[in-house]
Design a binder for these strands. Sequence first.
RNA 1: GGCCCCAUCGUCUAGCGGUUAGGAUCCAUGGUUUUCAUCCAUGUUACCGGAGUUCGAGUCUCCGUGGGGUCACCA
Length: 465
Amino acid sequence: MTTTRFAPSPTGYLHVGGLRTALFSWLTSRHNKGEFLLRIEDTDMARNSKEAKDAILKAFDWVGMGCDGEVVYQSKRFDLYEKYIEQLLVEDKAYKCYMSKDELEILREDQMAKKERTRYDGRYRDFIGTPPEGVDPVIRIKAPRQGTISFVDGVKGEINIAATEVDDFVIARADGAPTYNFVVAIDDALMGCTEVIRGDDHLYNTPKQIVVYKALGFDLPNFYHVAMIHNEQGKKLSKRDGATDVMEYKTMGYLPEALLNFLVRLGWSHGDQEIFSLEEMIALFDPNDINKSSSNYNLDKLLWLNAHYIKNKPDSELVELLKEFGVDLEGNDKASLLLSATKERGKTLVELAEQIKLITDAPTQYDEKSAKKAFKGEAKEILSAFADMLALAKPTSKEAFHSVMEKIVEDKEIGFGKIGMPLRVSLMGSMTGSGLDEIMAILGVSETIKRIEKAIATIKANFVM
RNA sequence: GGCCCCAUCGUCUAGCGGUUAGGAUCCAUGGUUUUCAUCCAUGUUACCGGAGUUCGAGUCUCCGUGGGGUCACCA
């Protein structure tokens, strides 16, 4: 059975980069009909918060990536970790180190001055004698002193790191609290994780965790280290680079399926395919296909994908989603007409809502440039005649409105633009937007005439002769 | 700085020793559309550099360069 996991520390919101690795993990488990577990890494009591934890869970909920089983909290497992620390101490695989933080700092500065790698020198590794007074010891694990720690990474291939690069790192702080690399290894093993998919920045933690696995006699999982996502300058994605909080995308009017589709293509591909439904991703994804190189974060494609998903979303779902953006079409018999008129010109739900309001809300003013162009000449007379024809014909459908337009063009022997331009500005306030027949069908005869009359009044007021 | 990783159009990527180096996005142009958007068509743009291996290298090796990651009693 394949088991994967996502293990965020609750120190902030869910980051888009984190969401991508979570997605990779989730897809891997789903592809293999295994389990996807969530573990909250909250061993650092000083830094984590409940708000952050809730925010992360909420983001998972929004994108629809469910996890299996109970969420695991490391803070509730301290007894368990303590047991293993004790075990290692008894087996002489770990030891108490009485070096003070100050002493450590001096050692580090010294190593830095010599341009050496900074690391603990192992001075208490085989210490026998009386420990110094007044210092609470930390527990350090005995890491191999020579040789190479090797593992096969599913993304990068074989990784070899000299044992000299890995020091006897701390597994329990002076206050007894266990540290990250220790608990991760234990939890991953105990939770039965078979594939550990995580960010590249954990690559150097892996040899340390392998030391723990070996000391405790656990089987190693398969590791996959996914390269980072960079900003457009090639640096690590940071808050300054715009939206990094997953939930910001919701506010900006993105659909979760678009975000996921965008993210899955960062570092993974399947031939020339660009559009992936969740089902397709699950069917096709394999963590061994993840790219080695890092990718740059550029939102152009996300916008395109979002537009695609909006265009193909059922009206009923759009109506529901639009509510959060100030447009309530629930029960509106013009809803589908309104959506078909606007769906293709809103790349985000925010834009879609704006487009809809542009039709439903009568223009309070006319775009100056458009009015100047559209309201000149005989526009007033044409509009007036058109309003009369509408009053007479009382069209109700898009087609019927279109016929009236055709008729005036014919009767007056004018081009379509002669009626189209002034009509558009009268109805929408500017020269762009959905099809006029669609707009009129949505507004109905009386509202259409009302807007035309208002425009005529404006023309009279501004173009007095 | 030590160690580790990476390197194809601006961006996301295909390629897995022999291709006119493909797709997508972006941008530009044209067509459709009364306008805008959509849609369709066309176009510009890439193998970081240098040695090797080979009949032949974007693909393999080495060196260089550039970029990134990491060096905690954080996770």
